[in-house]
Simulated scan of single mutants.
Amino acid sequence: MNGLQRNTDFLTPIEVELGVDENGMTTAKKLYNFLELSPSNYSKWCRTNIVENSFAEENVDYWAFVLNDEWGGQATTDYKLTAHFAKKLSVKGNSEKAEQAREYFATVEERVKQKAIDLTQLSPELQMFNKIFQSVAEQQLEQKRQAEKIAEVENRVDSIREVVSLNTTSWRDDTGKILKKIGTSLGGGQMYSQVRNESYELLEKRAHADLNRRLVNRKRAMAEEGVSKSKRERLTYVDIIADDVRLIEVYTAIVKEMAICYGVV
């Protein structure tokens, strides 16, 4: 225990929080908690961003291991992450924590480079083999980087096309999809509800409209018309927006702006 304490004495606060080891590696769970993402979405986040990530290679970028619950609960799978991969995962976040993580892991990568051995001390033969190895490695890494860039561009083009094509005809489904995408990028879970509520608040401010008052009035009118209570209760702000062409136009513009602001295009 004392030995462990001596080791952590030399760590910075961010290294302690990320559980960084002597190789600058953290774990998926430590990084996830550091980024302050939704606790209920951890498994899905790991599956989407690590296990099913076509640009991440097991036993190269990450190593899976079983994490036993200290209270005797169900064991979970965690992943050891290289500094480079952890930085890539942090890039997807827009919070201050994500920025801190990106800066830290970028520093770790630079530190690793500085620790590289002086190749001039090697024999001519080993220097030759090293050059061959480096050449092959650089080619493979460059191919991987190019594939990542192509995929990123394709995804961005698809997202931009989705936002640009957003119009007042299919606005219901289109705005819903974009808001869900924003919610997912922020960690999923309750984030979608928060993003959706944010869109309504922006609409009320910009259009000077009281959506709740309109909703109450609409339900009262439906009751007077004899519409069943169950149908009245299913009424939402989206239905209220649909009644007003001006609200539809303003709301559509707001969702487009949110997509750009949250970086989902």
Rank of each mutant, 00 (worst) to 15 (best):
Q100L: 04
K113A: 11
E125Y: 12
H84K: 09
K88E: 10
A116D: 07
A83P: 06
K97V: 01
R111A: 11
A83E: 04
E125S: 10
D173Y: 05
A98Y: 00
H84G: 06
R172T: 09
D173R: 05
K144V: 09
V163S: 02
K88P: 01
G93E: 01
A98R: 00
Q140W: 08
N155E: 09
Q114L: 13
V153S: 12
Q127I: 05
D118Y: 03
S90L: 04
Q134A: 10
K144E: 13
K144H: 15
D158E: 12
R156L: 13
E99T: 03
Q127P: 01
L81M: 09
K87V: 01
V163A: 06
V157N: 10
A106I: 01
Q134N: 08
F129G: 04
E125A: 14
F85R: 00
S95D: 05
A147I: 07
E142D: 11
R111E: 13
K97P: 00
L119R: 15
V164T: 12
A106N: 08
V91F: 07
T169R: 11
S123Y: 08
I160K: 03
R161G: 15
N130F: 15
K92F: 04
Q146M: 15
Q121L: 15
T175K: 03
K87R: 13
E109Y: 05
V108F: 02
S170I: 06
N155S: 10
R145C: 05
L141H: 09
T82C: 07
R156E: 13
Q139V: 07
S170T: 06
Q100A: 03
A137W: 14
I160F: 14
L81Q: 03
Q121N: 11
E152N: 07
E103S: 00
E110F: 06
